[in-house]
Amino acid sequence: MDERNFTYMFYGFAAVWAILAGYALTLAGRDRKIRREIENLKRLLEERERK
């Protein structure tokens, strides 16, 4: 492969993977947050029912 401008090509490819991975991690983080909130809400409802 011609190595002219290789560094910028690498930056471009790295940016693609970084953005895709960043978005996938954001989605995973949101999933965890929603699950945590559901658990908290369940606990809250159980406490209210007991009262």
Binding site: M1, D2, E3, N5, F6
Partner: peptide, 19 residues
């Protein structure tokens, strides 16, 4: 990266077009 030929004027950077 390894199979497709280089672009005559741009060198390696042209491969950004594939993304």
């Amino acid at each position: 990266l390894l199979v497709l030929p280089d672009e005559a004027e741009q060198g390696a950077i042209y491969r950004i077009i594939y993304f």
